[in-house]
Amino acid sequence: MGVRIGVLALQGNVSEHIDAFERALETTGHGTPSPVFPVKRASDIAGCVALAIPGGESTTISRLIEKNHLHEPIRTFSGGIFATCAGMVLMATQVDDPRVCPLGLIEMTVNRNAFGRQKESFESDIVLAGVGGGPFHAVFIRAPVATSAGAGVHVLARVGQGIVAVEQGKHMALSFHPELGSDTRLHERFLKNLGF
């Protein structure tokens, strides 16, 4: 059986995440028939080995997670979660905005829109600790950062003081968007951590 990966499809850039994971699976030799598909219901999540929480509006996605009774199914999901941007906000234990109800899966405090508004959004090459192959071209769009992380959290990268890439257990959270580029090293690393 293939590596079933679900992309939480409540709101945000779902199709880019599906494409990026398909490319990563191809690179790691797991290609088709390993399906990557959008998930909206608790019953869809259960059969996955990994779940991606895409970028989008964290307040909107959080509201839809609660409305669709997905908070507990995601929080107790046994696989790994790959979260970018809004997804990183949702993975935190604490968020600076009371409208977001975080999942508490990675021990960190996250601030939304930490770099400012869209005109302050930026691209930059960043260094990821322990990721070979040189700097990573990262795309930050109204991006969050973690202002602090617990002892069990592995910090992969910072921009200034802000933490922008972390791992804890099977999970990975990034404040930038690897799914918008062609570099799948982080996807591959995430899959490798899961044993694929």
Binding site: A9, G12, V14, G55, G56, S121, V139, I141, R142, H177
Partner: peptide
């Protein structure tokens, strides 16, 4: 960055 921002609005 521009197209990426638009993409985050999807759905």
């Amino acid at each position: 960055l521009k197209r990426g921002f638009a993409s985050m609005q999807k759905g």
